[in-house]
Design a protein around this nucleic acid. Sequence first.
DNA 1: CATATTTTGGAATTTTTATTCCATAGTCGG
DNA 2: CCGACTATGGAATAAAAATTCCAAAATATG
Lengths: 269, 269
Amino acid sequence: MTVTPPATIEDFRNRLADVTDALPKRLRQCADYIAANTDRIAVSTVAELAAGADVPPSALMRFCQILGFSGFSEMQKLFRDAYAPGWPDYSTRLSNLKENGAGSPAALLAEFVEAGRLSLEQLAKSVDEAALSQAVAQLTDAGTLHVVGLRRAYPVASYLTYVFEKMQVPAMLHDGTGKLDHRHALRAGDACIAITFAPYSDETLALAQDAQTRGLPVIGITDRLTSPLARLSSTVLTVPEVDFGAFRSLSATLALSIALAVAVGSARG
Amino acid sequence: MTVTPPATIEDFRNRLADVTDALPKRLRQCADYIAANTDRIAVSTVAELAAGADVPPSALMRFCQILGFSGFSEMQKLFRDAYAPGWPDYSTRLSNLKENGAGSPAALLAEFVEAGRLSLEQLAKSVDEAALSQAVAQLTDAGTLHVVGLRRAYPVASYLTYVFEKMQVPAMLHDGTGKLDHRHALRAGDACIAITFAPYSDETLALAQDAQTRGLPVIGITDRLTSPLARLSSTVLTVPEVDFGAFRSLSATLALSIALAVAVGSARG
DNA sequence: CATATTTTGGAATTTTTATTCCATAGTCGG
DNA sequence: CCGACTATGGAATAAAAATTCCAAAATATG
């Protein structure tokens, strides 16, 4: 029963995929954990990985053998040989990037990474959970979701629509292509998600207004509570996005939007 | 003579630089070898490193202690821990989330925030500065920039185009609206930016192919070096985006893209 | 429901690896 | 050239890790 052990990491992944389905409970746990934490193999001990997978060490040993290795050590060798760490330390790396001369692409990137991280941190701190839940509830009960966002908000609007589609939630992106006006697509029972940041886009506000007039719920995603979009919305979600230069990273806005979409998708599904 | 051990990799490098000069022959060999092979520490044994430095294991042990560690194991721990927990176990976390009472929207948001944060961190660690500079150079010298990205990459493509427009760089978004084919818009002297992630979009690859055939520079933004887009690109930028469930946060991809666009915009302006 | 088969957990064992210690070699100051 | 001190290599020991093995539990089979 000597099978040859996987010779490359790709081999390894294939073998893993092959066997996973036919495995009993504990060994399946091993497979799942290893699949998700492949890169830890090189720097961990049997005991550590076993603890992570929540199985006894012996189960992990058996698992290695099923994969075709003589034992854990042989498997680990494969990964140790291939080991090539990225830069180890985030803050060190970030200052290295910045040192490469102000205005260099790398320095710019460091700034945007920083801005994105800050935005995400603030979002986590400042999110209004009640408003978020309310938004999810309103969107869950609605028919078609109409998403509108232009200029810098357009990527967000398009991604939202993409996620809704993937989650089989009827959604329509109002993107103004061909200046076709789709405002009559708003029907009773629908809901609207409008996204705009200063300087606020008239078209976006107009659609929100329209939806409000027809009595549809409007979820507004915007930069502050005093935004003109706030008045038009039944629920307002504010996003504290940190700008760098004239451009926002959108990290926080996207995170909020996807969370919203996935929550709605699951609730409906 | 209990010195506190270095707490970060940066500490470690400083300490190493401090002591190196005052070291006798064998220990100096250790210092030199370790300095040149810092990244192997996490995955090697004392014996292996000692062999590499061409000293007996005991010399290496002494060396570790001079650096302030209690022994080799303590030093190794520093590097193993610093090796980014790679990519957390998101699929498991997602299913946990579903089990634990259908995950409140706020919990979902927390996950996406975390995914975004990790992605940005990974990006900072792993970005290829040379490739980035090369991409900027190629785009700076080009005429019109043709941006293509569909599905999940579409938000990135559209934002890139937005930023280029704002910076007065001629750019064209190939978004497939109306299935109009714009491949003949690619003219000599232009350049192409193609963005796609697994599962790769045929249309995006087709345009990249077209550009390559005409001899235009192609900047590929993708998830790994083995992506089919890599073959078609003159410069490849890989983005380590952490997926949460089926959806990527795009934080890292956007940060990279904006940095690229702003760098090109300034260089041209 | 009894029996055969598979899976499991953990204790016992073996192997590998880290660490200490000390006799010896080397170096420096006088 | 002699002693005092430092550095070195390797053998001995301790610690940690991997691996095996088997009784017990779980599961499948007739």
